[in-house]
Amino acid sequence: MRAEAQTGTQAESRAEAMAQAITNHPALLSFWDFQEEAGSDRVAKGPHGYRLREMDGPIARADDGVFGPYAADMTFGQWFNLPRAECPALNFHGLEGHLTLIAWVKRAGRVNTECQAIAGMWNESNKKRQYCMFMDLSIWDSADQVCGHVSSVGGPTPGYIYCMTTAIGGTAVSKEEWHAIAFTYDGVHAKVYLDGELDPRKEFNPYLYDGGLFDGGEDGADFTVGSVDRSGEAGNRYVGLMGGLAVFNQALTEDEIRSLSKH
């Protein structure tokens, strides 16, 4: 029992240290640890205390967290929404739209029925795509990998019916286990990371994309977590636990991502 208690205390200390490193990073915009109870907004720590709103009913807490005892338990169709007008700092666009998203996820052990959006500003219905981290995109011979979608045009990639411009990792991400997944864009390359390490794939990670990000304007996409924005409806829904989400206004280095991701 004493050894177990020490192990638990050590894990808590590591989680606290990692959370402090995230909140102290000079490029941090918002960091959600998902400790709030169901029925509550999830409020970010850091310079911008943006509030994620539950969609499709209260999102339960699971007793299985990363930055504390809990995580958001997202069932099929549930997601979080942050209206565009309320989060100007997350509206990355143009050639200077540099960013990093890091999310801590435990995917549910279900048969994949559609690609799963993790977080971003991405409205497909109104051709207002900007950026979004996905899993299971199912394009370019991908399935369970981490993907970092970028768009400079808002609509489908010319010559295709979908947006095809994305970084795609080389490793299938297991289910029912915690993973830190990350996506960066520096105006030239999109990159994705798995558990703190660049997950290389020839031609796709790093992914050359020097066109910048689309400017959705005042009526552009909301910032969403666990879904894309389809004008108030859910799409590309994530299922599983969400233990943390951090957004930065720079493309962090691999060393930085490694140090902030390890748990």
Rank of each mutant, 00 (worst) to 15 (best):
M1Q: 15
G8I: 09
G8L: 10
T9E: 14
Q10F: 09
A11V: 01
E12H: 08
S13E: 11
R14L: 15
M18E: 13
A21R: 04
A21K: 01
I22R: 00
H25F: 02
P26E: 08
A27N: 08
S30N: 13
F31D: 09
D33Y: 12
F34T: 01
Q35D: 05
A38Y: 01
G39T: 00
D41A: 14
H48I: 13
H48R: 14
R51F: 06
R51D: 00
R53A: 11
M55E: 10
G57F: 08
G57K: 07
G57Y: 04
P58E: 03
A60W: 03
A62N: 02
F67C: 03
A71K: 06
M74Q: 03
Q78C: 00
F80D: 01
F80R: 01
F80H: 01
L82Q: 05
P83Q: 04
C87S: 07
L90T: 08
L90H: 03
L90R: 09
F92Y: 12
F92A: 05
H98M: 12
L101Y: 07
L101H: 06
I102L: 04
I102R: 02
V105C: 03
K106T: 05
A108I: 10
G109Q: 11
R110M: 13
V111A: 14
E114Y: 02
E114C: 06
E114R: 04
Q116D: 07
G120E: 04
M121S: 07
M121R: 13
N123W: 02
S125P: 11
K127F: 14
K128C: 04
Y131F: 12
F134P: 13
M135F: 15
D136N: 13
L137K: 15
L137F: 15
S142L: 05
Q145N: 07
V146K: 01
G148F: 10
H149W: 15
H149A: 14
S152K: 07
G154S: 01
P156V: 00
P158V: 05
I161T: 15
I161G: 15
Y162Q: 14
C163T: 15
T165C: 10
T166Y: 11
G169M: 05
G170F: 09
T171M: 10
T171R: 04
S174G: 15
E176L: 11
T184D: 06
Y185D: 04
Y185G: 04
D186C: 05
D186K: 04
G187C: 06
H189S: 11
H189P: 13
A190M: 02
K191R: 12
L194P: 00
G196E: 01
E197P: 05
L198D: 00
L198A: 05
R201A: 00
E203C: 14
N205K: 01
N205Y: 09
Y209M: 14
D210C: 12
G216H: 03
D222A: 11
T224I: 13
T224F: 11
V225E: 09
G226A: 12
V228M: 14
D229I: 05
R230P: 11
G232I: 04
V239H: 08
G240K: 03
L241Q: 11
L241S: 09
M242D: 12
G243W: 10
N249Y: 02
N249G: 06
T253K: 11
D255M: 09
D255T: 12
E256P: 07
I257M: 03
I257Q: 04
S261H: 00
H263V: 14
